[in-house]
Design a protein around this nucleic acid. Structure first.
Length: 484
RNA sequence: GCCCCCAUCGUCUAGCGGCCCAGGACACUGGCCUUUCAAGCCAGAGGCAGGGGUUCGAAUCCCCUUGGGGGCGCCA
């Protein structure tokens, strides 16, 4: 087999949808696994909806995911340009070639007129499939002259052969398209730009793409593209159609189902490796059933033969769980850095305050990370260390009621006289008072927690005491004494 | 309407004719651990859409039905 060359070809018309991200990932993994080339091509022939800003954002998101391309925007390559808007002469030339060989034809008609033809077809009970004969009145020399004088361009239609096509899809298996299932279609628009199906074929051929891995919403496009390859007598690439990602209700995943773009998940605090790992498992499985896999491991074990063909529902709960796994296992230096912007924008601490207390910050992040699935949940968990809690009034009463007053005072003294404020020192101070006073340990710990944080649950108490700092702890302990 | 794709626990999936009275993961339930919550560990409940074939034998192969999805644009 020749060297593998695959491509991801998004249109910069919005954020990177998770479905697109998965397609990109599979192309990337396939290329890397086979030591091939991963090309990024920008399909920006829809002038209305494409923008350069969105393209930049798209590229940044790709890099955030860790999907570096070998050829494409920003870095170029031997097969460029990689933006379709910069290749329009190429498409024109190829379209012209098809017209010359009689495999395509010019139609001097407006979109409205073509709509009328379609309506006429449907009205007479025929499927909306155009053919050469339907456009006779728009192909007259008079029409052509009219167009030339006005400086307008005709559209170029491709003559779709009325024959059956067969596709050996790498994922779906053999697919048969019946004869006459579609009609002639536009390959070059009146504004001189190519349509998707045409540009796609021309580029894939010129860029020597060997494998086209894309969503199966393109399956019916493949029929058209196969016909174009045939018209040029080009050898088509191998196709692999991955099934779509669906919403929980089984419909197409869209904005009304919540977050659907990689950017949104990134904002929520999904780590890129969790996003990648989760997406890889949507439609693909590891040979040994492993689920937590790094990019490296994915590259190592990924191949098309384990991609299966049924659609997958996007289960955000599992994504969150997986992200929690990554948050727990992440290097503390890195996780702390990732949490910084979330805490800063919450107003709990400024960036400078964090920098000035970075050791403390890391310990705090470490103390709460096991209860978090998203980076955005950190500020709320860190709050107990930073804000004055509301201590329930009755806690002092309860402490006295349970006969804990003395031990609390003893603890206060013990903590106050500690030489170093370290978890170890705090721990031994607690052990000491616990030895001196015969109290119910459960009562003691629970009451202490409530007195210090106002809550009945939270991180390990020793951590809480240490991270709260001596000042706050002593002050809260003081209440027991003063309200005696 | 026409064309195409898909169908294993609620969800992601393993399974590619006997190893399956179907295995794993998330979620769920119970227990253990723990000062609490979380994490972790253990256990449990839960599925081959339906009907026909083929075969000694079918979740696995074929056909039909049903259900879901995609497409039928001078969008990609």
């Amino acid at each position: 087999m020749d060297r593998v060359r695959v491509r991801f070809a998004p249109s910069p018309t919005g954020y990177l949808h998770v479905g697109g991200a998965r397609t990109a990932l599979m192309n990337y993994l396939f290329a890397r696994h086979h030591g091939g080339v991963f090309v990024l091509r920008i399909e920006d022939t829809d002038l209305e909806r494409s923008s350069r800003e969105l393209e930049e954002q798209l590229l940044d998101t790709m890099l955030w995911l860790g999907l570096e391309w070998d050829e494409g925007p920003r870095i170029g390559g031997a097969y460029g340009p990689y933006r379709q808007s910069e290749r329009i002469d190429i498409y024109k030339r190829y379209a012209e070639e098809l017209v010359k060989s009689g495999k395509a034809y010019r139609v001097y008609a407006s979109p409205e007129e073509i709509d009328q033809v379609r309506e006429r077809l449907v009205g007479s009970g025929r499927p909306p499939h155009f053919s050469f004969e339907d456009f006779q009145e728009y192909m007259t020399p008079e029409r052509e002259k009219e167009y030339n004088e006005r400086g307008e361009n005709p559209v170029i239609f491709f003559k779709m052969p009325r024959k059956a096509y067969r596709l050996a899809d790498l994922i779906k298996g053999e697919i048969n398209f019946k004869e006459g299932s579609i009609g002639d279609f536009v390959i070059l628009r009146s504004n001189g730009l190519p349509t998707y199906n045409f540009a796609c074929v021309v580029d894939d051929h010129d860029m020597e793409i060997t494998h086209v891995i894309r969503g199966d919403d393109h399956l019916s496009n493949t029929l058209r593209q196969l016909a174009i390859y045939e018209a040029f007598e080009w050898e088509p690439p191998r196709f692999a159609h991955v099934s779509m990602i669906l919403a929980p209700d089984g419909s197409k995943l869209s904005k009304r189902h919540g977050a659907v773009s990689v950017e949104e998940f990134a904002k929520q605090g999904i780590l890129p490796e969790a996003m990648v790992n989760f997406l890889a498992l949507l439609g693909w499985s590891h040979p040994e059933g492993r689920e937590i896999l790094s990019l490296r491991e994915l590259i190592e074990s990924f191949d098309l033969d384990r991609v299966h063909s049924s659609p997958a529902i996007f289960d955000v709960k599992k994504l969150y769980w997986m992200n929690g796994v990554y948050i727990r296992n992440c290097d503390i230096e890195r996780i702390a850095q990732l949490v910084v912007p979330y805490v800063a924008s919450s107003g709990l601490m400024t960036k400078d305050q964090i920098d000035a207390n970075i050791k403390w910050f890391k310990a705090a992040v470490d103390a709460v990370r096991s209860s978090v699935e998203l980076l955005s949940e950190f500020p709320d968990k860190l709050r107990i260390f930073l804000e004055e809690p509301e201590i329930p009034e009755d806690i002092i009463f309860q402490i006295k009621e349970k006969g804990l007053r003395q031990i609390f005072q003893e603890l206060q003294d013990g903590l106050a006289s500690l030489e170093n404020w370290t978890p170890e020192a705090i721990s031994s101070a607690i052990k000491k008072v616990l030895k001196d006073f015969k109290v119910d340990r459960k009562d003691f710990y629970k009451s202490l927690r409530k007195l210090l944080t106002g809550a009945e649950e939270g991180p390990e108490l020793l951590n809480v005491i240490y991270l709260l700092g001596r000042g706050k702890v002593l002050k809260r302990l003081e209440k027991v004494k003063s309200q005696a």
